[in-house]
Amino acid sequence: MFELDVRSRVPIYEQLFEKIKELIIKGLLKEHEQLPSVRALSNDLTINPNTIQKAYRELENQGYIYSIPGKGSFVAPLKDRDINKEKIEKILEEVKKLMLEGLYLGMDREDFIKVLEDAIKIKEVR
Protein backbone atom coordinates (compact mmCIF):
# COMPACT_ATOMS: atom_id res chain seq x y z
CA MET A 1 0.00 0.00 0.00
CA PHE A 2 2.83 2.40 0.77
CA GLU A 3 5.66 2.68 -1.66
CA LEU A 4 8.32 5.14 -0.61
CA ASP A 5 11.43 6.30 -2.37
CA VAL A 6 14.24 6.24 0.17
CA ARG A 7 16.58 7.86 -2.31
CA SER A 8 14.22 10.72 -2.99
CA ARG A 9 14.97 14.30 -2.07
CA VAL A 10 11.69 14.42 -0.21
CA PRO A 11 12.10 13.41 3.44
CA ILE A 12 10.74 9.95 4.22
CA TYR A 13 8.60 11.41 6.96
CA GLU A 14 7.03 13.82 4.49
CA GLN A 15 6.51 11.14 1.83
CA LEU A 16 4.74 8.97 4.35
CA PHE A 17 2.64 11.84 5.64
CA GLU A 18 1.55 12.85 2.13
CA LYS A 19 0.90 9.27 1.06
CA ILE A 20 -1.37 8.46 3.97
CA LYS A 21 -3.11 11.81 3.66
CA GLU A 22 -3.77 11.09 -0.01
CA LEU A 23 -5.12 7.62 0.74
CA ILE A 24 -7.46 9.10 3.31
CA ILE A 25 -8.64 11.94 1.08
CA LYS A 26 -9.25 9.60 -1.83
CA GLY A 27 -11.16 7.25 0.44
CA LEU A 28 -8.82 4.29 0.00
CA LEU A 29 -8.42 4.34 3.73
CA LYS A 30 -11.90 4.46 5.21
CA GLU A 31 -13.10 6.16 8.35
CA HIS A 32 -12.05 4.31 11.51
CA GLU A 33 -9.94 1.91 9.46
CA GLN A 34 -6.81 0.87 11.28
CA LEU A 35 -3.47 1.98 9.93
CA PRO A 36 -0.57 -0.46 9.82
CA SER A 37 1.35 -0.53 13.07
CA VAL A 38 4.67 1.28 13.27
CA ARG A 39 6.35 -2.07 13.59
CA ALA A 40 4.68 -3.58 10.53
CA LEU A 41 5.39 -0.52 8.43
CA SER A 42 8.98 -0.30 9.58
CA ASN A 43 9.40 -3.95 8.70
CA ASP A 44 7.73 -3.66 5.28
CA LEU A 45 9.57 -0.56 4.18
CA THR A 46 12.77 -0.94 6.20
CA ILE A 47 12.53 2.56 7.52
CA ASN A 48 13.33 3.97 10.91
CA PRO A 49 10.34 3.49 13.25
CA ASN A 50 10.96 6.87 14.85
CA THR A 51 10.38 8.43 11.44
CA ILE A 52 7.07 6.59 11.07
CA GLN A 53 6.05 7.69 14.53
CA LYS A 54 6.81 11.27 13.56
CA ALA A 55 4.62 11.01 10.46
CA TYR A 56 1.78 9.46 12.47
CA ARG A 57 2.09 12.16 15.10
CA GLU A 58 1.86 14.86 12.46
CA LEU A 59 -1.16 13.17 10.83
CA GLU A 60 -2.81 13.09 14.23
CA ASN A 61 -2.00 16.74 14.90
CA GLN A 62 -3.64 17.68 11.63
CA GLY A 63 -6.71 15.60 12.40
CA TYR A 64 -6.32 12.90 9.76
CA ILE A 65 -5.92 10.05 12.19
CA TYR A 66 -6.55 9.34 15.83
CA SER A 67 -4.83 6.85 18.08
CA ILE A 68 -6.06 4.58 20.82
CA PRO A 69 -3.29 3.72 23.28
CA GLY A 70 -2.40 0.07 23.05
CA LYS A 71 -4.54 -0.44 19.96
CA GLY A 72 -3.03 1.66 17.24
CA SER A 73 -3.85 4.44 14.83
CA PHE A 74 -7.13 4.85 12.95
CA VAL A 75 -8.47 7.07 10.21
CA ALA A 76 -10.38 9.99 11.67
CA PRO A 77 -13.77 10.92 10.23
CA LEU A 78 -13.07 13.75 7.85
CA LYS A 79 -15.57 16.43 7.04
CA ASP A 80 -16.16 16.88 3.30
CA ARG A 81 -15.46 20.55 3.75
CA ASP A 82 -11.92 19.86 4.80
CA ILE A 83 -11.24 17.63 1.83
CA ASN A 84 -12.57 20.21 -0.59
CA LYS A 85 -10.71 23.07 0.99
CA GLU A 86 -7.44 21.31 0.43
CA LYS A 87 -8.28 20.41 -3.17
CA ILE A 88 -9.45 23.91 -3.98
CA GLU A 89 -6.24 25.38 -2.70
CA LYS A 90 -4.28 23.08 -4.93
CA ILE A 91 -6.42 23.88 -7.98
CA LEU A 92 -6.11 27.61 -7.43
CA GLU A 93 -2.38 27.26 -7.28
CA GLU A 94 -2.29 25.25 -10.50
CA VAL A 95 -4.66 27.59 -12.31
CA LYS A 96 -2.62 30.59 -11.32
CA LYS A 97 0.52 28.96 -12.61
CA LEU A 98 -1.09 28.06 -15.93
CA MET A 99 -2.65 31.51 -16.29
CA LEU A 100 0.68 33.16 -15.76
CA GLU A 101 2.15 30.97 -18.43
CA GLY A 102 -0.74 31.85 -20.70
CA LEU A 103 -0.25 35.56 -20.07
CA TYR A 104 3.36 35.33 -21.13
CA LEU A 105 2.28 33.48 -24.27
CA GLY A 106 0.02 36.37 -25.13
CA MET A 107 -3.37 35.25 -23.80
CA ASP A 108 -5.61 37.96 -22.39
CA ARG A 109 -8.50 38.33 -19.99
CA GLU A 110 -11.09 37.41 -22.63
CA ASP A 111 -9.31 34.14 -23.41
CA PHE A 112 -9.47 33.08 -19.78
CA ILE A 113 -13.09 34.12 -19.44
CA LYS A 114 -13.91 32.03 -22.48
CA VAL A 115 -12.23 29.00 -20.92
CA LEU A 116 -14.21 29.56 -17.73
CA GLU A 117 -17.49 29.85 -19.67
CA ASP A 118 -16.68 26.67 -21.60
CA ALA A 119 -16.00 24.83 -18.35
CA ILE A 120 -19.30 26.01 -16.88
CA LYS A 121 -21.12 24.81 -20.02
CA ILE A 122 -19.51 21.36 -19.81
CA LYS A 123 -20.50 21.10 -16.16
CA GLU A 124 -24.10 22.05 -16.94
CA VAL A 125 -24.34 19.44 -19.67
CA ARG A 126 -23.15 16.77 -17.29
Binding site: R39, S42, N43, N48, P49
Partner: peptide, 8 residues
Protein backbone atom coordinates in the same frame (compact mmCIF):
# COMPACT_ATOMS: atom_id res chain seq x y z
CA UNK B 1 14.98 -4.38 10.06
CA UNK B 2 16.21 -6.35 13.08
CA UNK B 3 17.66 -3.24 14.66
CA UNK B 4 14.46 -1.29 13.97
CA UNK B 5 12.46 -4.02 15.68
CA UNK B 6 14.56 -3.62 18.81
CA UNK B 7 14.10 0.15 18.66
CA UNK B 8 10.32 -0.27 18.54
Amino acid sequence: KLIFHEVI
